[in-house]
Design a protein around this nucleic acid. Structure first.
Lengths: 218, 218, 218, 218
DNA sequence: AATGAATGAGGGTTCATTCAT
DNA sequence: TATGAATGAACCCTCATTCAT
């Protein structure tokens, strides 16, 4: 029992430490997202996380390390879900695009997480290893998966063979635009990004779809 | 003579002053584009413009004023050209999109001017009036013009009536993506943005085009 | 048995405690000697002593207390040996100087312990009670003893009566110089301090020695 | 006249700037000498020099640069005087040592400038290039000159040939000791360094002097 | 109009010291 | 007794802005 007690004590401390770390990263995310990298003050991060000014430095050697941790934490684990879905779905590709994939983009656009995208756009060029990390972890696998999805549609006879396979970026470009619009212009002029994304998917499908009557029997 | 002299002197001075101003703004553009708003140092702006450290303050009260001037200066006058072309072209809309419009996007992506876009993404939300200005001056008229272009295609029977008219942003979203890719990822992974943009236009046309045989004679 | 057990336990604890203390002081000596007072970090002291960051504070209230303990520990017990030898030697003073005393100085110059001298030089003026302690414990008795040694030589007819008795510091000044040379300049320019010290002793003896033929028979 | 005026204006500014620089270095000398390198606060340097907190950074990139400038400024030009005298004196070497040279050492010991020696002792090992500079600029030439002085005495038949020529450091070691005594112990126990130095010179001369009756006629 | 020296508020970072466990 | 997470004061350095010339 005494053992259990002390173990538990250790676990508590571990948990507390982990929590603090997460709280700091989370607070930092807000501050970076709001003020940009240079504009964010570590002291504000600390007080948002309700810790002392010096604590972040116990977990992150420098502001930049903290920034990297923020990017990593936002990125990690969120994109694997949809990727898994894409690769295992049984739906016709067209239905998948109009359903789950559209949904995914719509959700992403309205989530706070995408602020990281704006951050990266704004500050990424000053942190090459970070962009590389993001490219390797999120962008490249994501594009790979999308390419695969298009190809699957082609193989199944749903889609014509087009250059879209080479530029899966085109599938998500309007999502990027939506993110930026929301960040910059939304307060001045509303844009229905959900509908915009839906329109985008519909047009894309129209562009590459093989009409029902032309499909081969198999 | 004396009058002419002094007038000429006045003109010189005016010119010199204007030049100075332009040089400062231009130097500031480079510094802002390279280091971001917070990261740019007014002293570097001054020395890039080959003026003294204090001079920018004779023209711009604060760093923010200078920033606004930069945005305005980059924005102004560059977008009217293509807008004019769009509105007066005699080409079939399809041909216009595949020709001059594609060319315009390709040029823009590789111009230094688009760095302003990254700047706005990074700092825009802190300068609402600036984004408003940008929206009013560049974005809104641009979108308006694009809408008109699509509609013209519809009216001429080239295109089906689609929701693209409501979301002309979809025409330029890949351009935005291209800009960002170049800024962030290009050094890690090459993307042929010219070809990507071409593919985009082709797909879009495929999506909305009325097939030759279906067109009404008029 | 139980008693023995607990007694032993008590002894262990005492020993352990003393060891810890010594280890901390010893680690602190290294850190202070290497980085100076202000430059030494208590965390480094702790990790060098392989104890936790907080432990030194159980033994020493502040960094300054630890510093004092370091000075005291290095000082204590090391100088009594030579002092004892000086006071009890049967050798002619001249031989004593050329033999054991020279040896002592040569050893001291190459020992790590003299780093304390540099420390005191650097920080002593900020810790008056510490310099007083050092003066009372090491310097004053040492000089006293040296004075006595010279006087013994005079009384024995080996040396002339000179003012050297009033300034025994002159006997050790080259040792000080040697210490500093090693600390500062040795890496740039070698100095054979052993030979320098030998030369010093030889010259000093030449200066005060009563030539053989002039000595009184006794 | 206007020209002269503006020239004078320029000169004024130059002078003012140079003055500021000197004032900062001088203030820094005091602060470093009092608190050591790490203990000195640039803000205190600034306010001692009656300039703003940031000004020192216009003249010295970092604290270390300022420190180096302090060392250089104290060192420069002060040691050439005595060196010149040594090399050109017409006095018998013995008389020179007992007169001007002793005087020089006595003056030096009581000047504020020697605090730089304590500084170097304390911090020198952390700034190798600085100690090298000091060695090359002050120490090495000084020792060279002293060696020459001894040799001149030997050549003139005043002195025996001894190893002192190889270790001119022995001539100045008591000066070093005096500096340190004053810095550390003087407030606790008085030492008449003037007399100590005189005794030192007397003893040294006694050690190497060729007695009058033994000198060769020439 | 133009210069560039000077100012001083502000932010990143360190580290002696405290304290909950 | 021992740990190491946490605190917060202090300090170096930067840079937007001012001002004497």
């Amino acid at each position: 029992m005494a053992d259990a007690q002390s173990q538990k004590g250790g676990a508590d401390r571990r948990n507390r430490k982990d929590n603090r770390r997460e709280e700091i990263v989370s607070a930092a995310f807000e501050e970076f997202a709001t003020h940009g990298y240079a504009g964010a003050r570590l002291e504000d991060v600390a007080s948002r996380a309700k810790v002392s000014k010096g604590l972040p430095y116990l977990y992150f050697k420098t502001k930049e390390e903290l920034f990297k941790a923020v990017v990593r934490s936002v990125v990690t684990a969120h994109f694997n879900t949809i990727r898994g879905k894409i690769e295992t779905t049984e739906l016709p590709v067209k239905e998948f695009l109009k359903g789950p994939f559209l949904q995914f983009m719509q959700d992403l656009v309205s989530s706070r997480r995408v602020l990281i995208v704006r951050l990266l756009m704004a500050e990424g060029h000053k942190h090459p290893e970070l962009t590389q990390f993001y490219l390797d972890t999120v962008v490249a696998p994501g594009l790979e998966t999308l390419s695969g999805l298009i190809d699957k549609g082609v193989e199944r006879g749903e889609f014509r063979r087009t250059d879209l396979s080479d530029y899966p970026q085109l599938l998500v470009a309007p999502m990027l635009l939506s993110v930026l619009w929301k960040a910059l212009f939304e307060r001045h002029r509303h844009l229905d990004t959900d509908d915009l994304l839906k329109t985008h998917i519909d047009l894309l499908i129209a562009a590459i779809e093989v009409p029902e009557q032309e499909r081969e029997a198999s």
